[in-house]
Computed example of a mutant assay.
Amino acid sequence: MANSLRLVSVQSKATPGIVASAAYVGGRRVAEIPIEEAGEWSRKPGHVVWIGLHEPGLDLLRQVQKEFALHDLAIEDALKAHQRPKLEQYGEALFIVARTAQMLDGRIAFGETHLFVGRGYVVSVRHGASTSYTPVRERCEASPADLSGGEDFILYALLDFIVDNYMPVVETIQAEVEQIEDSILAETSTPLHVQRLYQLRRDLLRLRNAAVPLVEVCRRLEQPGLPGIDSSMYPLFRDVSDHIRRVQEEIESLREVLAFAFETSLMIGQAQQTEITRKLAAWAAILAVPTAVAGIYGMNFEFMPELQWKYGYALVLMVIATACGGLYWRFRQKHWL
């Protein structure tokens, strides 16, 4: 038996796309199984098969489809990804799409998780940026009493993990926004800060569009009529809905802060431009005095006032200096200089 389990484990690791494939009874792992035997294990009384896949190819998905009789449309969606969050029922099976998010190089990277849930099995398919669900599996295995709840508890654990991972993204953005706000209020912001605010606001909108539809998914999971969902699980799915709404509130609040910071940055920038324009206008007015006088005396007229007087040059310079000084003093009073 030990040799057989080792062989199965080696096969799972050698098969691209398979992260884990195990059977559970009473909340305890009893075997690591190959995909070819997953359907047989799931039909055993009291057994639950939990399979984790990461960006599987069509051949692997077809193999999983064969084992659990999954619908063609669900397999097509799981292969192509780029689906909006949703819950669809195909006979006695559920197909759920959830969007995942994490921070990569200062931007929100989005991925997808597709969940196939039916009597005796749960299959998770991850695409794109997504944290591994190994911690979810380990946490569930550490609590056999909860895991004994079956496939609906596994579904809850995965959705709860996906939603909980939204908050670190929001908190990271919040910390960065506070730093940018401080620089804006200190009038040390740069055009790069404005560009960054716009990027963050756009990313938050995408995060909102990824998270909020899960409220409707959980609402349907709370209602009677879905196969494989026990009524005792309704409060847990309601708790996931509450977490999503909290994320939504944080996103909306943060988007308002971003909008305020963006507008404040623009207003400060406009005020700085106005201040510079005033200074330039003031200096232009001051320089206009010697320019005008020099322009007049530069005309080619024979008879001009004080042209032959030996003190005329000094007098003109004194008039220019006095006029420029008076303008400078006046502009300083008006805080233009």
Rank of each mutant, 00 (worst) to 15 (best):
residue 81 A to C: 04
residue 78 A to L: 03
residue 88 E to P: 05
residue 37 E to H: 09
residue 75 I to V: 14
residue 68 F to M: 09
residue 32 E to V: 15
residue 39 G to C: 10
residue 31 A to N: 04
residue 46 G to Q: 10
residue 76 E to A: 08
residue 38 A to L: 07
residue 57 G to C: 05
residue 89 Q to S: 14
residue 61 L to G: 05
residue 29 R to W: 01
residue 32 E to L: 11
residue 49 V to G: 12
residue 59 D to V: 12
residue 34 P to A: 13
residue 48 V to K: 00
residue 85 P to M: 10
residue 86 K to A: 07
residue 40 E to I: 08
residue 72 D to F: 08
residue 83 Q to D: 02
residue 36 E to G: 12
residue 82 H to Q: 04
residue 88 E to H: 09
residue 65 Q to W: 00
residue 53 L to R: 10
residue 55 E to I: 03
residue 33 I to V: 15
residue 55 E to W: 00
residue 86 K to V: 12
residue 34 P to R: 14
residue 83 Q to C: 04
residue 62 R to T: 08
residue 87 L to I: 14
residue 81 A to D: 03
residue 88 E to C: 01
residue 54 H to W: 05
residue 51 I to A: 07
residue 89 Q to K: 15
residue 36 E to K: 13
residue 28 R to D: 07
residue 32 E to P: 03
residue 52 G to H: 15
residue 47 H to A: 11
residue 31 A to M: 04
residue 69 A to R: 13
residue 66 K to W: 01
residue 35 I to R: 03
residue 61 L to E: 05
residue 78 A to D: 05
residue 52 G to N: 13
residue 55 E to A: 15
residue 87 L to T: 04
residue 89 Q to F: 01
residue 64 V to I: 14
residue 85 P to S: 10
residue 32 E to H: 14
residue 29 R to S: 11
residue 79 L to M: 05
residue 77 D to P: 08
residue 44 K to A: 11
residue 91 G to N: 12
residue 27 G to T: 12
residue 81 A to P: 05
residue 28 R to S: 12
residue 48 V to C: 08
residue 39 G to N: 05
residue 39 G to A: 08
residue 27 G to Y: 14
residue 58 L to M: 07
residue 53 L to W: 02
residue 90 Y to F: 15
residue 85 P to R: 09
residue 28 R to N: 12
residue 47 H to W: 00
residue 36 E to Q: 12
residue 52 G to R: 14
residue 44 K to M: 08
residue 72 D to M: 06
residue 77 D to V: 11
residue 31 A to T: 06
residue 54 H to G: 07
residue 29 R to I: 11
residue 54 H to V: 13
residue 86 K to I: 09
residue 48 V to T: 15
residue 73 L to E: 03
residue 63 Q to N: 11
residue 48 V to A: 07
residue 47 H to C: 12
residue 64 V to F: 00
residue 91 G to Q: 11
residue 36 E to A: 15
residue 40 E to G: 02
residue 50 W to S: 03
residue 27 G to D: 12
residue 29 R to C: 15
residue 51 I to S: 06
residue 90 Y to G: 06
residue 39 G to E: 05
residue 86 K to W: 09
residue 88 E to L: 03
residue 48 V to F: 01
residue 59 D to G: 07
residue 81 A to N: 04
residue 82 H to E: 09
residue 84 R to K: 14
residue 61 L to Y: 03
residue 82 H to W: 02
residue 89 Q to W: 00
residue 47 H to I: 13
residue 79 L to D: 04
residue 88 E to K: 10
residue 35 I to M: 14
residue 34 P to Q: 07
residue 64 V to A: 04
residue 69 A to M: 11
residue 91 G to E: 11
residue 32 E to F: 09
residue 56 P to Q: 05
residue 42 S to D: 07
residue 71 H to S: 02
residue 53 L to F: 06
residue 91 G to M: 10
residue 74 A to S: 14
residue 29 R to H: 02
residue 65 Q to F: 01
residue 55 E to T: 15
residue 91 G to L: 12
residue 60 L to Y: 06
residue 43 R to I: 02
residue 38 A to Q: 08
residue 72 D to P: 06
residue 89 Q to H: 03
residue 46 G to L: 10
residue 79 L to E: 06
residue 75 I to C: 10
residue 52 G to Y: 04
residue 77 D to W: 00
residue 79 L to W: 08
residue 76 E to V: 05
residue 53 L to S: 09
residue 40 E to N: 09
residue 76 E to T: 09
residue 49 V to A: 10
residue 68 F to H: 07
